[in-house]
Design a protein around this nucleic acid. Structure first.
Lengths: 223, 223
DNA sequence: AAGATTCTTACGAATTCCGAACCTTGGCGA
DNA sequence: TCGCCAAGGTTCGGAATTCGTAAGAATCTT
């Protein structure tokens, strides 16, 4: 995620990162940065110091005091040593003075990401499919910025589909994995839950991601 | 540990760090650096790139390929972007161009050390989640300024939840970790303790931090 | 013996589940 | 092109689960 109010910088960095294959979310003020980075689904934060609403340093401190360990790379036009010091002491992981070269940004970014993925001893905590993000540990899910409020069965079902993105799951295999047994062939329970999920995932006008495969089952896929 | 062949830099940095209370070992060439840093007992490596016997970048790569995760801060006179990039890609954690100010060196050093001690999965002395502070050693807890008076089981439960902030813990996993075994599925013991903790953590009108995840368990989270 | 602490039980409240009835859609043969 | 019909979608509401809390018994501490 990039938090930067200067449109030129924000857009050029976003474009460059996307070319490199990263998925980028851009925000333009401190409060939005704090909000978005507080949830999961953000792997690294590029943070400008001078932003409206909330100063970058404050965002940094807030995130750290909330226990977030997300890697933070601070961007700033200020070049005084004292600024760097306060940035690092606020909990930033690295510091890059403007103007910076794209190569250096990418290198520092790789370095931070390599370090943070090292930390993850176990399986990836989140599944990301386009704008759908599922945090398995927290049992929370987002479509874009919007958090979905899911009941147990709804979450289990969405997680199952997301773990098998692009794969068609048959009715009976879904019944097996969610309920542990197959209901009668005339049970509409699964259809009901697919309905719930579709309503909740498309509530903001987003395109459909849960596709019906007639005569077979369902699959999670963009189309 | 500092690896630096220029005597003036080596000695002044050593002296400054010792004044700050660090214990410093100094070596003057790449082979010695690799040897000393391969063992344990070194918390952080200040590495000059231009050294006799073995180049700093090579030291860096060797250490990383041997699985060492020691924080490495690269010092160099070279200022070209390509040097920075190759340094970071060789596995360095941070980069400081000469000449550097002592203040900045110290700040980056603190940042790296904080990061690496963070990584230690074992006991941080206190857990902080927003305005909730838990001192594990003293077995005391505060919500804001107010100290919570907790019984043994209450404290254990709150600590468990706080160690897993944002993660949903299932009933059985909580029973396992707090009581050592699962009570019957119709025991309400857990619900009762959750109730006690909620009463005590919300006594001053604070917002709820212990959330129930229906059908699954509980999680500690702000929302 | 008094007080704390742990844990069970009982019951009300809230949520979630899912069968059933009815509606919509898509594929297919005439 | 039309109409049929089976598969899938939607809605409703009672049943079943799950949760929260009060009251109190059992056990441990001081």
């Amino acid at each position: 995620m990039i938090a930067e109010d200067d449109r030129a910088v924000r857009e050029s960095v976003t474009r460059a990162l996307e070319l490199e294959g990263y998925t980028v979310t851009a925000v333009t003020d401190g409060v939005a940065a704090l909000d978005a980075a507080s949830g999961s689904g953000v792997d690294l934060l590029l943070l400008d110091l001078g932003m409206p609403n909330m100063d970058g340093l404050t965002v940094c401190r807030r995130l750290r005091s909330a226990g977030s360990r997300i890697p933070i790379l601070v961007l700033t036009a200020r070049t005084e040593v004292s600024d760097r010091v306060s940035g690092l002491d606020a909990g930033a992981d690295d510091y890059l003075p403007k103007p910076f070269s794209l190569d250096e940004l990418l290198a520092r970014l790789r370095s931070l990401l390599r370090r943070s993925t090292f930390d993850d001893t176990d399986a990836p905590a989140t599944i990301t499919v386009e704008d759908l993000v599922i945090d398995e540990a927290a049992r929370r899910a987002w479509r874009g910025e919007r958090e979905l409020e899911l009941t147990k069965t709804e979450f289990d079902l969405l997680e199952l589909l997301a773990r098998n993105t692009g794969v068609v799951l048959s009715h009976s295999s879904i019944y097996d994995q969610i309920w542990g047994y197959d209901f009668g062939p005339d049970s509409k329970a699964l259809a009901v839950y697919i309905g719930y999920l579709r309503r909740k995932t498309e509530d903001g006008g987003e395109p459909r991601i849960i596709q019906t495969v007639r005569g077979v089952g369902y699959t999670l896929r963009f189309s």
